[in-house]
Design a protein around this nucleic acid. Structure first.
Length: 278
DNA sequence: TACCAGGTCTGAC
DNA sequence: GTCAGACATGGT
């Protein structure tokens, strides 16, 4: 049994900030699935799981997030303070590498609710059925299983034009020793990832950050681009250059700050939309 | 209805 | 090297 830290951890912030897609919420309790493992995070702060050691690492419990938080505020940039304050319960999860690669290929030009649906259907179709606390769940499919299906199969799961990317990537990954990529520098890792069809600069940065713990990565998507223009008054158009601008500014804290900013900007819009409907 | 979503690929200059 | 257009699908 694990217990959630009292400070700088909020399960809702951490799961809803867009880094992870396989979780459900019910009355303030969360169920998270990662690779073959499953965890139940109760609103009382108790974590029951199939593998405590796995989830201790998964939730990044060893890291001092007060240092991350103060480093973020120390830049003296107003929106950083607001974003860090708003998302101070966010942690960067240490997720399964294969799962992250597949998930973020699906994320391109797509929205989060739909990505969740596709992954959920894919795991139900190909993942091993397991059980935890009397509820069944599906493990993330093995590479071998993923590689055994063709684009048409993935098309039928609703992946759209990304279907062939998934089929090809699974086959190509079978020939690779993904865990050995840990030795690569962040730059070489990114170059390696860019050789896969369907992985561009933004998805490569997400994979580096969420799958390989490279916190010197700063993915630039539509939301971050908005922040860059509106809040940093930036004029660059090339997303690669915007990434360079932020990583040079934030260094090893780039990934954390990116999540604070993304979560803050996106949630702000969602909240405003909700208000309109009331 | 039209536009947007954690973009990338392709082909034309 | 840069840039426009295409791309599946579901939500608003």
């Amino acid at each position: 049994m694990l217990k959630t830290p009292e400070k700088f951890f909020d399960i809702s912030d951490t799961l809803n900030c867009g880094q992870v897609f396989r979780y459900t919420e019910k009355e303030g309790n969360y169920t998270v699935i990662s690779d073959k493992e499953c965890a139940f995070v109760g609103k009382d702060g108790i974590i029951k799981s199939t593998n405590d050691e796995y989830f201790y690492n998964y939730f990044d419990f060893d890291r001092d997030y007060s240092a991350v938080y103060s480093a973020t505020c120390s830049f003296g940039i107003e929106i950083l303070k607001k974003a860090a304050m708003y998302g101070k319960g966010v942690r960067i999860l240490n997720q399964d590498k294969t799962e992250i690669i597949i998930s973020f290929i699906l994320s391109q030009n797509n929205n989060i609710p739909r990505i969740k649906g596709i992954l959920s259907r894919m795991c139900a179709a190909l993942g091993q059925e397991r059980e935890f606390l009397g509820e069944k769940y599906y493990a993330f499919p093995s590479l071998k299983k993923l590689a055994s299906k063709d684009a048409e199969f993935y098309y039928a799961l609703g992946m759209g034009y990304r279907a062939p990317y998934i089929a090809q990537t699974a086959v190509k990954l079978l020939d690779e020793d993904i865990s050995s990529w840990e030795k690569l520098t962040t730059q070489s890792l990114k170059e390696k990832l860019l050789t896969f069809k369907g992985i561009g600069p933004k998805v490569a940065d997400c994979i580096s950050l969420f799958g390989f713990g490279r916190t010197d990565s700063f993915p630039v998507d539509t939301w971050i681009e908005k922040i860059y223009r509106e809040d940093f008054k930036g004029e660059l158009k090339d997303r690669n250059k915007i990434t360079d601008y932020f990583t040079e500014l934030f260094g090893e804290n780039s990934g954390f700050i990116q999540q604070y900013l993304f979560y803050y900007k996106r949630e702000k819009k969602l909240r405003e939309e909700k208000k309109c409907h009331l």
